[in-house]
Every structure is written in structure tokens, then in C-alpha cells.
Design a protein around this nucleic acid. Structure first.
Lengths: 258, 258
DNA sequence: CGGGCTCTTGACACCCATCAAAGTTTGTGG
DNA sequence: CCACAAACTTTGATGGGTGTCAAGAGCCCG
């Protein structure tokens, strides 16, 4: 229980995630196996990417959680997106030194160098078609997540936002093989949750208790269980990214890359 | 005063916008001149892109305003981003049929075929380096705008959100040459404004009046004037995309494209 | 064992939503 | 060009959802 979030290894983790997005060939596997090197540990609250920073080497999160966020002058904080094991930083980005955001470790985080992935994307070799396709889909899902976040913050109540966030996490962690039944680790303080869903800490607390009272979730020290996914989905108007391997033909994805 | 938003022409409009993002060569100009064709008019409320739709041909907005938005089951609406003259639809998108959003005309809108731009981006010829670079920067700015929107909705008050939106519009319209001093057209109902800033119509109305009372803005039937930009910036914590032609070396942008 | 986070709870205030209705502007057809 | 309808804006009254402040309880870690 020392490092509850540790996954088996970078290659395994990424293999699980990417193969849920596109089918991977042997060459893809060999590519992913090359990701063992250059591992690095980051302490909690460490800044993985500073505001306005460019050109730091791309990295893959092996274990731990981080967040892409912005802080206002007066200290108010808004988290744009959580970064989970299997997520990648700076791989499929556009040239966007413009997006004033930073990446901060929310727990202890272990990353590994992901230059190989960025390179694969750039070279776009046919034998790595699976990897490239999957990375592009992952990027598209990331974009969709930002839109979800906008809807949550703009038009949903505290209860809806919270339910929606939990469902999103269940889905994303599920892709990385980090969900057991409907239980998963949630190594976030309520203050962090508040900075995601745009509420105060106190109200996050009350919202979680309301969900607990209604037997929708079970939450305790670093882990959650979703007790009634259907009702949560109804509450949150949740739609998972429609991407379950094959719903998009790899050809189309590649065509757009060329 | 029949069509207050009409700009001089697609080529002129784009030239102004793109040349504020990167320097354009003669070949770029010739490319942009080819955009006259295939013009089309869209009635107000017409859906330019349906939810989940893919592969419609890319278009450039020549005149009028549109919005990328999502509607919840129960009718609540959230606008992700306004699309203004000089904005482009479906040009620099990733493969993202995943982002469940649609594009709707908020006024009468005139578009023109932008396949040439998408093609230039794909081919990435050296002689069109300016166009390609500018389109990429525009896409990055678009991304940054989504992050701004998240901060607005998650962590800012009604007053701050509204001020921020007006400043964003001033900046974006300025790029397209559609701002006079600090006056610009704002052909939106308060209901639409509400769907952008995540408030009720009534409260948008009160917020605008508060801004007017404080002599920060002057707003009347389809147009606004920002009376005190500095104070508005202070209220909204507004930071324009740091992209004023040259702040980013074209080389870097291109390097990332290759 | 103590000190600091984090979580929890209560009281209270305020921002914003909702409901309702009156003005005002816009658009349209006669 | 007028008249009317529809859409939009404005205003008031009221209520509810969240924020803020404060204090206590639980927990983790040194």
C-alpha cells in the first residue's frame, strides 16, 4: 500500500491503453517496449511543465496523478484536465506555447521519456500505424474532454458535475486497466476536486455526501466505488467518447494525418 | 445597414487575419485569392455542422457569426466558442469526430469553401509556409480560447466572465480588422451571451447594466464600445494570446509541423 | 505523542436562477 | 408606411444553490 497507483510498467500500461483505441501490430509492441528508459520521479506539487514553457521533452505518466491547470492572480485555481497513468504530455500537442497552463503533480508521479512516441507520430511509418492512430485518437479524446469540462462548468449543477467527473474517471482509468468492478483509486483531496469542478471545498464535501447518502457512490480515503452507474449516467447526462476500438476505421484516422 | 457584418471579401479578410499571425509571401496571397469560389449563405439558426458529423468540407466564415455548442438532454445549451468572420471550420481539426458538438449560425452567415486551406496544411509546401504557420497558430489560439473559457466558467464571477468575453471578442475581431477604436459589432441576443458565459438571460442583462453603470462599456442594439479597457482587463484578468506576429519565430512553428 | 492537513458540520450571506410582467425593438405583411 | 406580432430587453420579487467563515473531529506522519 506504499504506492497504490503503481502500474506494472510503462510498456504494459500503454499497451493496454492504446490497444483499446486501435489494434497494435508487432512493430507497435516493439516500439512500446522501448519506453523503459529515462524514468523519473516527481514529488507531489512538483511542476512538470511551467506556464508558457515550450520544448520540454515529451513524457509518459507511468504512475501517479497530475493536473493541467491555470492559476489566477488572486490564487483561484482551475484544473483543466487530470493526467492519469498512461497519459502522455507533450506528444500530440499542436504548436501551442500559447495555452497558458502548467502541469503539476497531484501525487508522487513517475514518468518516462516519450520521445519515441512523438517521433513515431512525426515519422508516421506504416508499421507503426497502430500506435500513431491510437495516439491521435487519444488526443481527440483529450479535446473532447475539454468540451465536457466546459459543459460541466457552464451548465451543470454541483451534483451533476461531480457525477460526471466520476464517470469520466471510471472510463479513463478503465482504459488503462485501473478499475476493479466499479472501484478505482482516487488519490485527490477534496480541494483538488473543487478545483476541477469549479466549486468550493465545502460544497464538494456536501455534494459527495449527498451522493453517498443516495447510495450512488462509496468513497473513502483514496478510493471510490460507483454503486449505481446507470443512475449516475442519468444524473450527469454522461456520454463516453464513442471510440470503442473499431468504431472509427484506422484508415480514416490515418488519412487525416498524412 | 442591411448587412452590417459583411466584410470586404474572403481574401481580404483572411489576409488581414493571417498576416497578423505570420508573414505571408506572394504565393500565400495567390493561394488566398483562390478562396472566392463556392460561396454559400446560411440562414440564422441553420446548422453548419451537425453533432458527431465528419467529413463535411472545410469552410471559411466570410460574414456573420456562428457558434460551436452542445445541447443537453433537457435543453440547456452551452456555447464552446464563437466563430467570427475570418474563422475557419474543419481546417486544422484533428481526427475528432469524437467531440460531440455542432456549429450553428447565430446570424445570417456567409461561408466560402476552404478546401484550399486544408490542402495547403496537408501538403505543407515551402511556398505556403506563411499560410500554414498562420493556420497552425490560429488553431493554437483556438485551443487557448477553450482553456480561457474553462477558467471563466469555473472560477470567475458573472462580471468577470462578461468582461473577459468582451475583451476576447475585441481582440479576435481586431485581428480581422473589425474593430473601430474600441467599438465593434456584437450581433448576439442576451440569450446567446448567457449560453456562452454560463448564466441566465436575466443575470446577463443585469451584469451588462452593471458594466454600463460603471462606465466600462457602452452597449446598444448590436454594438458595444469598451470605454475603459484597462479597468476591464484588471477585472477580467485578461491575457491576450501572446502571438503578436514575431513573438513566435516561424521556424519553431514549422519545425513542429514537419 | 503532537502538529498539521484533510474532512466534516453549522450558521449565515450572497450571488445568481426562476418566475412573472411590463417595455422596447425588430420584423413582417397588408 | 403603418400596424401588429413576435422576439428581445428590462425590472421586480422571491427562492435556492453555493460561497464564506468558523470551529471541531479525524487522520497521517514525523
Amino acid at each position: 500500500m506504499r504506492t497504490p497507483l503503481r502500474a506494472d510498467g510503462p510498456a504494459e500500461l500503454l499497451r493496454r491503453r492504446l490497444s483499446s483505441l486501435a489494434s497494435l501490430a508487432d512493430a507497435d509492441m516493439r516500439l512500446l517496449a522501448g519506453l523503459q528508459i529515462q524514468r523519473r520521479a516527481h514529488a507531489i506539487t512538483e511542476e512538470l511543465v511551467g506556464v508558457g514553457e515550450v520544448g520540454r521533452s515529451p513524457r509518459l505518466i507511468v504512475s501517479g496523478w497530475a493536473a493541467r491547470l491555470r492559476t489566477l492572480q488572486d490564487g483561484r485555481r482551475q484544473i483543466f484536465r487530470l493526467l492519469l497513468p498512461g497519459d502522455v504530455i507533450g506528444v500530440a500537442d499542436r504548436a501551442n506555447p500559447l495555452a497558458w497552463s502548467s502541469v503539476v503533480a497531484l501525487t508522487r508521479v513517475e514518468t518516462t521519456d516519450a520521445a519515441l512516441l512523438a517521433q513515431a507520430l512525426k515519422e508516421n511509418r506504416p508499421e507503426h500505424a497502430g500506435t500513431v492512430g491510437a495516439l491521435l485518437i487519444a488526443a481527440a479524446i483529450e479535446d473532447a474532454g475539454l468540451l465536457d469540462q466546459i459543459v460541466r462548468l457552464g451548465r451543470q449543477t454541483a451534483l451533476e458535475r461531480t457525477a460526471h467527473l466520476l464517470l469520466e474517471l471510471r472510463w479513463r482509468l478503465g482504459q488503462a486497466g485501473l478499475v476493479n468492478g466499479d472501484r478505482f483509486a482516487l488519490p485527490l483531496t477534496q480541494e483538488v476536486l473543487a478545483d476541477i469542478v469549479g466549486l468550493s471545498v465545502v460544497h464538494v464535501n456536501r455534494t459527495l455526501q449527498s451522493l453517498r447518502r443516495d447510495r450512488l457512490i462509496n468513497i473513502r480515503s483514496g478510493a471510490v466505488e460507483l454503486l449505481d452507474v446507470d443512475r449516475l449516467v442519468a444524473i450527469a447526462d454522461f456520454h463516453p467518447p464513442r471510440t470503442l476500438a473499431g468504431s472509427i476505421e484506422p484508415q480514416r484516422v490515418l488519412a487525416r494525418t498524412a
